[in-house]
Structure formats: structure tokens, C-alpha cells
């Protein structure tokens, strides 16, 4: 595919845990050997339970963490080995929208300064007037009143602050944005406003999103393709509608069946696949397929061999020995 904007191969990110002078630290295998590609102008959804490594993937892809192993190519450039000038240029194209709109904005800076700072850093505006026009244009773009340029974050509601975060990410004209749970901290009626804004921006500016969330129905709504993660590994990737209609990995099936639907007659009829127990620790993941401890289709080989990613055609990938 020449339309690929981000290519991640065999990415690993381990965090050392504890240890001491005379101990080798234990490793938290937050992301363990994952590969995926992203198409320009499309959204890839990343879902999974908390602690499965989805945020780590997002942060590593845009270079906030240095990967333990693996390669991340952005438009063919390796994000980590490129020269300094090239790196700065590449990093500008990749931005992030954070989960908590209360913690991710500096309370002492005005909205104008927050959105304007990246413009200064990358010298994207000549002179004060152009700078201010650009900030106002950005505020308008995300649905905020451009006259509020001198207000402080506390004067805005949660949804509006999230919009400030989006405007800041857009300030440097990025091509690729990692949205890390952008809606989980805002109210239900506001979530749809934010998501619709993101969709509109994607269409207008031809943006590529990596949309990380645990709300499966929202991910389905916004994403073109969805990757399901479990314990640091991607277990299944497919086109959004296909994944939800015909999940093949046992974990994807269980995850989807656990999502409650706000339709009482339908909800009463549904059969749940209840997973037993909890997610194992990423410090000592089970051998073989990491899901075999909770899987209802586990066969002996699952305990021994890590399943390879299998291509089922049309970009449908699944890592399971005994999928259906």
C-alpha cells in the first residue's frame, strides 16, 4: 500500500519495575511485539481493557517513549533514527490529544497562549498579527468562540477544554493525531459533540487518527479499522463493521458480548460470554497465547506456542490457534 502513513513493525516496549542495586529489575511487558499499518486519512481504533498497553502504543508511536525494540516508520522515515532536523519535522506532523482535559492544559496560560505555543516553537507564523489570526482560526475550527482567546482553562467546561486540546494539536498542521481516550472524561451528551467535531476535522484536513478508547461502541462509530489488544498484543484487526459483525478471536467475541446495549428487549435476549477471572499480570504473562488462561476455546497448543498473526484476507488479521 502506498497510502500507508504509519507503519509499525514488531514494536516492543518494556518498563523496568522495582529492582535495586543488586537486583535485576522485573520487566512489565506493556507492548509485546505488535505490528500494524495505518492508512492516510483513515482512523484506526485501538481497544482493550485497562492495562493492555493501548496508551503505551499511542505514546510510543508518536515518540514520547523510546521503544525497546521494533521500528516505527512515518511516511517512510524512521522516527527514532532520523537526523535531528528530519526528526523535528516528522514530529511536527504527529500530535496527540490527551484523555484528561483538566490535567493537560496549563491553568496559568490563556487559551491563546496554549494554542499559540506550538506555532511559536515551529515558527509557523510571521509577526504578532498572523499569530493571533492563526490562533483564532484554530479556535473557530474546533467550535470555540475566537473571542475567548484571553480566557483561562478554568473558565471552560470539560467539553470545551477538550476542544482547546484539539486546537493545540492542530496548531502545527499535523497529518497524524493520536487520540488517547479523548472522550472518556466528558459527559455523555458532550461526547457525541467531540466525536462529530473530530470526524468533521478529519474530512476537512485529511487527518489520520489513532483512536484509543475502551468504549467499544464509540470506537466502532469513529473508526474505519479496529485493532483489539490483550495483554500487550494485538489479537485481531479488521474493518470496523466487519470486526463487530463477525469477530473470530475468542477474546474479541467475549469483549463485544460484554458491552451492554441500551435496548431492553435486545439486551434480555443476548447471550453473554462471561470471561472468568482477571487479566493476568504483564510482568509474568502466561506462556504461549496470553489469553489461554481465560479462553473457552483453548487447546493444548495454546499453552505452548505464541500464535502467529494470520491473514484471513481483506486486511483481516487474527492471532489465534483455534479461531472460529
Amino acid at each position: 500500500m502506498n497510502n500507508t502513513i504509519v507503519e509499525v513493525t514488531n514494536l516492543k516496549k518494556f518498563f523496568p519495575l522495582g529492582g535495586g542495586l543488586f537486583k535485576t529489575p522485573e520487566l512489565v511487558r506493556a507492548v509485546d511485539d505488535i505490528s500494524f499499518t495505518m492508512e492516510a486519512g483513515k482512523t484506526l481504533g485501538l481497544v482493550g481493557e485497562s492495562g493492555c498497553g493501548k496508551t503505551t502504543v499511542g505514546r510510543t508511536v508518536i515518540g514520547l517513549y523510546k521503544p525497546t525494540a521494533g521500528k516505527i516508520l512515518f511516511e517512510g522515515t524512521d522516527v527514532f533514527t532520523a537526523g535531528k532536523a528530519k526528526k523535528t519535522q516528522t514530529r511536527r506532523q504527529m500530535q496527540m490529544i490527551f484523555q484528561d482535559p483538566y490535567a493537560s492544559l496549563n491553568p496559568r496560560m490563556t487559551v491563546g497562549d496554549i494554542v499559540g505555543e506550538p506555532i511559536d516553537i515551529h515558527h509557523l507564523a510571521k509577526g504578532k498579527k498572523e499569530h493571533q489570526e492563526r490562533v483564532q482560526y484554530l479556535l473557530n475550527l474546533v467550535g470555540l468562540n475566537p473571542d475567548h482567546i484571553n480566557r483561562y482553562p478554568h473558565e471552560f467546561s470539560g467539553g470545551q477544554r477538550q476542544r482547546v486540546g484539539i486546537a493545540r494539536a492542530l496548531a502545527v498542521e499535523p497529518k497524524f493525531i493520536v487520540c488517547d481516550e479523548p472522550i472518556s472524561a466528558v459527559d455523555v451528551s458532550i461526547q457525541a459533540q467531540i466525536v462529530n467535531t473530530l470526524e468533521q476535522l478529519q474530512e476537512d484536513l485529511h487527518l489520520t487518527f489513532l483512536f484509543i478508547a475502551h468504549d467499544l461502541s464509540m470506537v466502532k462509530y469513529i473508526s474505519h479499522r479496529v485493532a483489539v489488544m490483550y495483554l500487550g498484543k494485538i489479537v485481531e484487526i479488521n474493518l470496523s463493521a466487519e470486526l463487530y459483525a463477525h469477530p473470530v478471536h475468542p477474546y474479541t467475541k467475549a469483549l463485544l458480548s460484554a458491552v451492554p446495549i441500551a435496548d431492553p428487549p435486545l439486551e434480555r435476549k443476548r447471550k453473554r460470554i462471561l470471561l472468568e477471572g482477571d487479566v493476568p499480570s504483564p510482568i509474568n504473562p502466561p506462556p504461549g497465547c496470553c489469553f489461554h488462561t481465560r479462553c473457552n476455546r483453548a487447546i493444548p497448543i495454546c499453552k505452548e506456542e505464541i500464535p502467529e498473526m494470520q491473514d484471513l484476507g481483506n486486511g483481516h488479521l487474527v492471532a489465534c490457534h483455534n479461531y472460529q
Partner: peptide
Amino acid sequence: RSLPRLNMGPEDKLKPIWGQP
């Protein structure tokens, strides 16, 4: 109307409630 559902079609759009609480 502002909640996405798993059984939504690809063409369906969310309609948020305009304004703030």
C-alpha cells in the same frame, strides 16, 4: 441519539445535544 450503538449502520450519524448542561 447521542449514544453510539453496536448495532448502528455505517451511514448512521450521532446527533449530539447542542449546548451545555
